[in-house]
Design a binder for these strands. Sequence first.
RNA 1: GGCAACGUAGCCAAGUGGUUAAGGCGGCGGUCUGCAAAAUCGCUACUCAAGGGUUCAAAUCCCUUCGUUGCCUCCA
Length: 467
Amino acid sequence: MDIKIFDTLKGELVNFVPIKNDSVSMYVCGPTVYNLIHIGNSRPMIVFDAFRRFLEYVGYKVTMVQNFTDIDDKIIIKAVKEGVPFNEISERYIVEYMKDALALRIRTANFHPKTTNYVHEIIKFINELIDKGFAYESAGDVYFDVRKFEQYGMLSHRNPDDMRSGSRIEVSDIKTDPLDFALWKKAKENEPSWESPWGKGRPGWHIECSVMATELLGESFDIHAGGNDLIFPHHENERAQSMAHSGNDFANYWMHNGMIKVAGDKMSKSIGNIWLVRDVVSKYGADTVKVFVLSKHYRVPLDFSEEGLQAQKKSVSRVQQALKDAEDFFAGTVPYVKNTEYMKSKIETFKQALSDDFNTSKAVALIFDLSAELNKALSEKNETHVIENYHLIRNEFGPVLGIFEIQETQQKSSTDDTDKVMQVLIQLRNQARTDKNYTLSDSIRDGLASIGIQLKDTPEGTKYIIQ
RNA sequence: GGCAACGUAGCCAAGUGGUUAAGGCGGCGGUCUGCAAAAUCGCUACUCAAGGGUUCAAAUCCCUUCGUUGCCUCCA
């Protein structure tokens, strides 16, 4: 099956053909670790984790790298402010990042390299760029000479001359061209630094990704991904220095996700309109957050709002409840079956949707359809159809998109004390109903509802859901 | 100023040349229920920002206008 993706470099939908037949190498730009991550940061995590799973689903062996930039101005500033070594800050926020990723059920990449572990390779890489005439030292800094790289501007579809004339580019007399960017920054007093041929200093911002991608995936690899705010300058610069260094292609495909916005503005640490991942996940659950993100195509801007999340939570709960009902229907474990024709045709539809520039909103819509089918099958007691739809959601499509993989809501077992208390209350209420004492029965129901416990009178008896 | 993207129902959102314009939330009506809730069934865009054009045929291609946003500076 052909997989089509939108390639930022070509500016159009292209057929995805990996370098090696059966394997895919991808590099996803990770965070600079100086803060807790917000919902905006979570979009590439959610989207590209799912994309990676999809590639594996259709049979590729995927090697995924996601870096941590653990040395940078902001980390240093924060460390100074707290009076601790810089690596205490970066290590802290790597741990916090991992916690948030876990809460979102993002699978870990194959490699999570850190800049500071690659300083030796970075220095070597810069040295080679200087040898090849693409970089120069100036006052202890080393800069990339953009005029030497003919393709500069190609990824971001910009003309270097236009950018030079723009007033927002800072002019510096230590740079040959205002667009030149730092590969190596000379250490200021008391800054963390490493020894180098150019004196004490530290890596510039873009170089770490080029070096770590090259070290772990090779000079040329398949996919480079990240937020579209990284296209310029980060990815443009990465591409320039990498191609100048190797003389070969760098990433063959560039995938970029759109920004998450709040009330019309981009969610950004500098604007301050951020929602922390951990707060949103604990309030709405990972499935809701992920379905919310995957409901919209990954390249277009997504407006974040509590109202939107609230609406999504309802739809997500319906699917979760249908799955739980199916498990209850089979007293805990839904038996596996060989894929039926019905399942095969749904799987085909699912793959088709995701092959078309990763159209997750179509795939999510399919899951909602299956969830309705599952509910119908349950009420008709059609075992085969329950099994088919349950497995398609829980064990086939869910694990690809990273949603509905597990039961998020707490299941109460019959040995649980809560359940015992609930059974007493339900019995009491049902006696009242039999006696047609609806004032009492309704007051029990309303009372429970007010503390978040919902009663449902089904043909199989009264059930309850703890919100 | 330069370079892009987007504008589809009350709201969110697929569809990008040709069957009845997916799906979700909300709303209305039916089934179920003592009444609800949940589930389920039906209805909820004769129309795709506006105006031109191309075509046998356009939400889908082209042009113009209006509007929103992003990048050009750290950012996912």
